[in-house]
Design a protein around this nucleic acid. Structure first.
Lengths: 174, 174
DNA sequence: AGCGAATTGTTCGACCCCGAACTAACATGA
DNA sequence: TCATGTTAGTTCGGGGTCGAACAATTCGCT
């Protein structure tokens, strides 16, 4: 390998042995996709950044914050400021939970539901740009593979679930 | 949809309409994989977090910081503190570039090369855990799809490259 | 040769996420 | 009942990335 400073400096660098690593591609793809979406949709405050959270809240109204945090892959503590902002923007409400005075039932407001609908349309356009040129059959494989990766990584955090991961593709937790 | 606070609180939440979104799966998979790797390998300081960078430096010795930043998907300014730490840990050197007094030629030290080799082995084990249960044929499709996604997203940042992205799967830049 | 534009590395302030610690409330068991 | 442990939400400090600005240097054009 010749020294990079000898070559034409305007080229893309070779990625080294890690270029075929899926973990590495995963990282690059996610960062690029995340940025592109935020550049695409403006004028909604910080809702686009937390679209995944809003979708989960919309699909599971009344969930508590701990469940939401786990569902979106964040820590409980990180969710606090996020919900503070979404609440300030009247997108989300924190009601007292009926059965447990510690927890709060998180729901979309009417305005939040409208914002979610509009952002979902943007996300679909983004998804189309993301997957442009990839055949539908490959997309199905991609989805399944990503699901399996998520499952594999979560199994490392909770060793008790390893046996289940060995056996089956089931998404249920013991 | 019944209220979540009525149901058994110990279940995994449904992901809503976005559950099939590749952008969303991508995000969850990347975050989980990133965390799992950092938990796996300890005792190397902050080198594991920047393994991708080290691999690129190893494969392209003497590159300047701007090229490295673009290659790993970071900003020039973010790379400064990272290289400061890696230099402090004697993993990386910043030599003056021979042909341009503005830029610096980044290289691995001898110690850095050894660390890279050991971390690469850890990364291979991580990759195996990551892809466990996914057939090799699907992994090939996964790799190709991720490459295409990265290409698609970078095309959005540099509209001049759109024509090329429309035409072909070539990785070359105009 | 010379002047404006672009590039390189850097610093700085803002923002976001994490982990640890804390309080309030629930759960369990002697 | 009451002590112990666990869980929900929160606060706070640390660290990482970004964007904007800046000095030094190089490029491009005349």
């Amino acid at each position: 390998m010749q020294d990079a400073s000898d070559r034409d400096g305007a080229e893309t660098l070779t990625a080294g042995d890690g270029e075929s690593q899926i973990a590495y591609k995963l990282r690059l793809a996610q960062i690029a996709a995340y940025r592109a979406f935020e550049e695409r949709v403006t004028g909604y405050g910080k809702a686009p950044r937390y679209l995944g959270l809003l979708m989960i809240i919309g699909a599971n109204p009344g969930s508590n914050q701990s469940s939401l945090a786990e569902a979106v892959g964040l820590r409980r503590s990180s969710l606090v400021a996020i919900l503070d902002q979404l609440e300030r923007d009247r997108i989300v409400r924190r009601d007292p939970a009926p059965d447990d005075r510690r927890s709060k039932a998180v729901r979309l407001t009417g305005h939040g539901s409208r914002v979610l609908k509009e952002l979902t349309e943007e996300a679909e356009a983004h998804e189309a740009a993301l997957t442009r040129g990839i055949p539908e059959a490959d997309l199905a494989i991609l989805r399944a593979a990503l699901d399996r990766i998520i499952l594999n990584m979560r199994a490392l955090d909770m060793p008790a679930a390893n046996a289940a991961a060995d056996r089956t593709d089931s998404l249920s937790r013991s």
